[in-house]
């Protein structure tokens, strides 16, 4: 492991979860870029068949195959893998039982579809199993193939169950190969080399889900990582102005004078209408900021490292991903 000054030195599996709409995939992709920076090799994995990675990197749909998709700052490679549970099942059967042709036959009969869909926890064991295999994989020279693996995981509401595979398959198999496999996966998930990061916004619902998710993980003996606060808008104005706006004593007259000086008068020599409208906007912004402040304090109580990622004015594109990854590096997240 090369010496890097990051909060997660020694962590090789980064699991990224978050409520829908918080930008989980964007954060996972940026984290992979940040971790790969400076000549390292990182695998970015997705498991929900959404082709989210392909979308954020503006690529055609990814196959069930590890392929290089991006180059990190300072030379480094990000590989991507979209895990398909059915393919993972066939691979598993082939790898452990040498059942290749039989597997194909079973697929045609719908058995694989059935097994990966309703057998309790089997689907999750397969995708987490494939991920842990990539984490542990070594090249011929004995070195790890990937310096780190980033998993774009299911949403916060499902994360503890998703990772707590041993418990999930307990109803299915108390002994036998599946149980053994689940125990192995569980060992990787609960190890100090794994961290589960939460992506949230400074809004009530995602913050609440983060708190609940962290508690669930802790209860299940799984390692919470950091909290990535996404789409943060800058306060823009000093607190004194925001407080004034909240208390209805914002200096509209001074604002109007300034507008006039800048040549933004509404009509002949007057800028009061624009000033009033802007003051209303400031008041709204101040209320939002106060609410965000409260959510920030709530998140601080969780006791995990926090990173704030800016709202990208032009939306998420490749440039934006690099911008976010740089912000992560600066804050010590990677």
């Amino acid at each position: 492991m090369s010496a890097r000054d990051s909060d997660w030195d020694g962590v090789r599996l980064h699991i990224v979860t978050g409520k829908g709409g918080t930008g989980k995939t964007t954060v996972a992709a940026s984290l992979a870029l940040a971790l790969a920076a400076g000549g390292r090799k990182v695998l970015l994995v997705e498991v929900e068949g959404r082709q989210g990675i392909a979308q954020v990197f503006a690529l055609p749909p990814l196959p069930y195959e590890e392929r290089r998709i991006a180059v990190a700052p300072g030379g480094g490679d990000v590989y991507a893998l979209a895990i398909d549970p059915e393919e993972a099942m066939l691979e598993y059967l082939e790898m452990f039982y040498g059942l290749r042709r039989a597997g194909r036959a079973l697929t045609r009969m719908g058995v694989i579809d059935f097994a990966t869909t309703i057998a309790p926890g089997l689907r999750d064991v397969l995708v987490t199993g494939k991920t842990s295999e990539a984490v542990r994989r070594r090249a011929k020279n004995g070195r790890r193939v990937y310096d780190a693996v980033v998993l774009d995981a299911p949403p916060t509401g499902r994360i503890a169950r998703f990772l707590n595979v041993t418990h999930e398959v307990a109803g299915l198999a108390r002994v036998g190969p599946i149980k053994h496999h689940a125990d192995l996966v569980r060992g990787v998930m609960a190890s100090p080399e794994t961290a589960v990061h939460f992506v949230t916004l400074l809004e009530e619902m995602p913050v609440q889900e983060t708190i609940d998710g962290v508690a669930e993980l802790r209860a299940a003996g799984l390692p919470p990582g950091g909290v990535f606060i996404n789409m943060v808008r800058p306060a823009g104005l000093p607190d004194s102005y925001l407080d004034a706006a909240l208390e209805g004593r914002f200096d509209v007259a001074e604002l109007a004078l300034g507008l006039k000086a800048a040549g933004l008068a509404d009509g002949p020599g007057d800028a009061s209408a624009t000033a009033e409208a802007l003051a209303a906007e400031v008041a709204e912004h101040a209320r939002r900021m106060r609410l965000e402040g409260a959510e920030r304090r709530t998140l601080a109580e969780v006791g995990l490292p926090r990173y704030e990622l800016p709202l990208l004015a032009d939306g998420v594109d490749l440039t934006g991903l690099y911008e976010l990854s740089e912000s992560m590096t600066t804050q010590g997240a990677a």
Binding site: G236, G258, A261, L278, V282
Partner: peptide
């Protein structure tokens, strides 16, 4: 103040 508000806007 006006400059900051205009940036925000």
């Amino acid at each position: 103040l006006t400059a900051a508000v205009l940036r925000l806007h």
